[in-house]
Simulated assay, not measured.
Amino acid sequence: MKLVWEFEDSDVERVKAIVASQSDNPFVKERIGKNLWKRPPTISKERFWDVLVGCLLTSQQRSGPQSRVNLFINHRPFPLSLARVRGARSRTKFVTNTLTDWGGIRFVNRIGVHLSRNLRVVDTDRWLEIDATLKGMCAKRSPDAEVRAAADLQSMLAGVGPKQARNLLQGLGLTLYEIPIDSRIVKWLNGAGFPVKLSASALGDEHYYRFVLQGIRELCRAAGVLPCVFDAAVFSSYDSDGWTADNSVW
């Protein structure tokens, strides 16, 4: 069997229009500057950790410019830096207490457990596997390479599913084609008449996620837009003019 994605001219124009309408948004400009690089970024273990924390925090939570999650992520010094969590006597309790004290963040116990487990991953030889995966993406930028990298991270990291893996890679500035399909993307695509009715629960399945993402990539290709830019445009469109150069850096 063979599935062919076909889109009307009006579908393509909607994508072009949303990207054009957000072209001056600092969030979109930050995405373009970070992901459409000419020289690959250097990703330290500390940088990887910070973005990983951000991905787990933004999962199933409001993460607009003035949300408690985004304010936490952009707070400096970063409250859950690698050094701080590593130095805690009880890492799970430290994460949980830090998030609880900040307030307005859900699932703090689950996040504490996941980060404690993930610290054991990045502080062992498995970091070499992660580092090799990231460097491999820099060497060859393609949808297939991004899919493989996302699968690798899912297999190694706690609390990281299809969406979180792509959010992590995108946050590191490594992806062009694979995007995190969050509630805003789902809402926009359903409203635009995407051929498949999307649901957040179904997107937890890797095969369904990749099927839907293939359709998004084809739609973006028809519009001459990179998926990572489309993602930033849709995401920022729900926040009016709330994004600035300072709060969209993570």
Rank of each mutant, 00 (worst) to 15 (best):
R89E: 15
T92N: 15
K93G: 00
A88K: 05
T92L: 15
A83G: 02
P65R: 11
R89L: 12
I73P: 00
H75G: 00
R91W: 02
G103W: 14
A88P: 11
R110W: 08
G104H: 08
L71S: 11
T92A: 12
V95D: 07
A83W: 02
Q66I: 03
R106S: 08
T98L: 01
Q61C: 03
S90K: 13
G103D: 04
S59F: 10
N97A: 14
R91V: 05
N97K: 14
F94G: 14
G87W: 08
S81W: 12
G64H: 12
P77R: 05
P65S: 04
W102G: 06
K93I: 06
V85H: 13
N70S: 12
P79H: 06
R84F: 02
T96I: 03
S59I: 05
I73M: 11
S59A: 15
L99G: 10
T100C: 03
L80P: 11
P77C: 02
I105N: 06
N70A: 06
L80Q: 10
R106I: 01
S59Q: 15
R76H: 12
T92D: 13
T100P: 00
H75Y: 11
L82R: 15
S81I: 05
T96A: 11
G87A: 10
L80M: 08
F78H: 12
R62N: 14
N74A: 03
S63H: 13
R110F: 03
R68P: 01
